[in-house]
Design a protein around this nucleic acid. Structure first.
Lengths: 340, 340
DNA sequence: TTGAAAGCGCTACCAA
DNA sequence: TTGGTAGCGCTTTCAA
């Protein structure tokens, strides 16, 4: 393969200095229009592609951002949120010439190490901060590492710019709908309570009931998994005062809940109305189909990528809120059973 | 933040030349043991972390590899294969100091562009080649771009080193098992036939029937989706000579098939035995649970990453085969119905 | 075995 | 507005 065309070649062909060529190509001021055009033409002729490596070294930027998933590497397999999220991220990054570096850490310490390494290697210019937990140790770390970040569904206020999808209106809508259908006891299966988004959903559910002057139903702490949903069903449906409706922290949990309920001989929605959160495809694979609050992983990913690119370019960003989650009523919820 | 510690600092502290420091740190010959130790100590004292950028520029390597998914960005959401696959990849790359750059292209041409860009930017040292199609245009492109690659489940022979999980034994086992249960007509719902792995599964199914001297059942071309499975069910179960068993190209298809069958009043497994391919978690969320051929996405990912790292380091690799797919018999298959 | 110096390809500063 | 040049941090060649 012929030697790579460099800016030296372009400058030579255009008959200008390297520095002028650089300025011209990067649309920096201080170059006459004539020169700019000449350099452009030369670059085109030579099919010049700037070297990311040279650029990186001298400009001290990586033109890449990182995403570290704090998870068992195989959880991605069962959590469909990340597919859309990743898709949204890369589609935006791509159009800005940025790349996504994907990392995974099993357990909190391993995850922190990934960030340390990304920073030490200067592998990325910034990172996404997702799946936030209470007192998340990554906040202090990123701060110490001087690594710019954009948070996803963070609490407010938050030390980094954040993109949020408002979940509250939809949760309120769901609760109102269930109350309207005659449900008196609406239970909630939470996610792991260290997760901020798990708490946000629980809080919204509680607030919705409280503001409707209805007694707050029982809760079970789940873990956002199918199996966790099954456990929750055994726990909630075994009791005499079992709820007539349950709002699960995510769809996977709701699906597990329905599965176990069915095995216990509890009918859905006749005996218990079940709803989830996420709006994953899988929810429509079951009969009855799952009532859920649909989020927009792709959009969240795209918006956070847009923000992160701005942030690493030095723009001061304010938080961004995308369209709220949306209530999707389907077959798994209906009027409350009248007799216990 | 203090200025970054560079190799210059290390050399100075060790009292040697930069070049010696470099050789010492990289375990290159031509440095006395004493010098090596002195340099090491200096580096440790200073907490020296080599600059990936400097290294990249001078060594012409990116220390990163790329994965381009030729998909609708949101398909990741519904195809659980990639979660495990990604997990396997990053876990291995990580331990070698390599990073994964993730890209997505919607449609073949966009996908090719991603590769072109990765190559033009020298963003990666090599790429994974997954979801191969017949006469895959990426082969010629990568060749032209001089981009090393490792293929996943490629046909044999193949112009790039490949990692494969043998599917044939499990398909044969499945067919034998179904025949043993009295099934005479075993249908197959393929994946999109441009995909090599879709063809491989179909071929294995056909070969298994042929070698057992059983007439080859009907096929329907599916698309690896839930909806495709539903369509296939309508097509296959509507006919008078409807099969008593069906082998679906993947689990999602099988799940769709079961869903539609149920709605048509066809009982599973009493009226038709259904089996899939992949072994995704979701298959166990349904009643009856899905009989399937379980693959190892994580292992495939890990093995291909191991190979790719070797390849970009210049090792001539031979193909690698991981443990074969495994037959998991569950409730969705049973004895054939005796009367039509 | 060691060290000096020339790149790698670009940016950015400063003089002209 | 233009051009020369000194980095950025490392590898690698070639003398010493």
């Amino acid at each position: 393969m012929a030697d790579r065309v460099t800016i030296v070649d372009v400058a030579a062909r255009a008959g200008v200095a390297i520095s002028s060529a650089s300025s011209a190509l990067n649309n920096r001021p201080g170059v006459s229009e004539a020169t700019r055009l000449r350099v452009r033409a030369a670059a085109d002729d030579l099919r010049y592609v700037p070297s990311l490596r040279g650029k990186s070294l001298s400009s001290k930027r990586a033109f890449a951002v990182g995403l570290v998933l704090n998870r068992d590497p195989d959880v991605l397999e069962s959590d469909p949120f990340f597919g859309g999220f990743l898709g949204g991220i890369v589609s935006v990054l791509d159009s800005h010439g940025y790349a996504l570096v994907l990392q995974m850490g099993e357990g909190p310490e391993a995850t922190l190490d990934r960030y340390r390494r990304l920073a030490a290697d200067r592998r990325v210019d910034g990172v996404f901060l997702s799946e936030l937990v209470v007192d998340d140790p990554r906040i202090a770390l990123l701060d110490a590492l001087h690594l710019p970040a954009v948070a996803i569904n963070a609490d407010t206020p938050f030390p980094f710019p954040a993109v949020r999808q408002d979940h509250r209106p939809a949760v309120f809508e769901l609760v109102d709908y269930l109350l309207g259908e005659g449900h008196q006891t609406i239970a909630h299966v939470t996610g792991p309570r260290q997760y901020i988004h798990a708490r946000q959903r629980e809080d919204a559910w509680r607030d919705a009931l409280t503001s409707a002057d209805v007694v707050v139903g029982p809760t079970v702490e789940g873990d956002f998994t199918f199996e966790g949903g099954r456990r929750a069903a055994r726990e909630l449906l075994g009791r005499v005062d079992s709820p007539t409706a349950v709002f699960c922290g995510n769809d996977l949990t709701a699906i597990g809940f329905m599965s176990e309920a069915r095995e216990m001989g509890v009918r859905i929605p006749e005996d218990v109305s079940v709803s989830g959160y996420d709006g994953i495809e899988m929810g429509s694979y079951f009969q009855p189909m799952l009532t859920t609050l649909r989020t927009s992983p792709h959009h969240i990913g795209a918006e956070s990528a847009r923000m992160l690119v701005d942030v690493v370019r030095g723009a001061a960003m304010e938080d961004s809120t995308i369209e709220p989650a949306e209530l999707i009523i389907r077959g798994s919820t209906s009027r409350a059973r009248t007799s216990l």
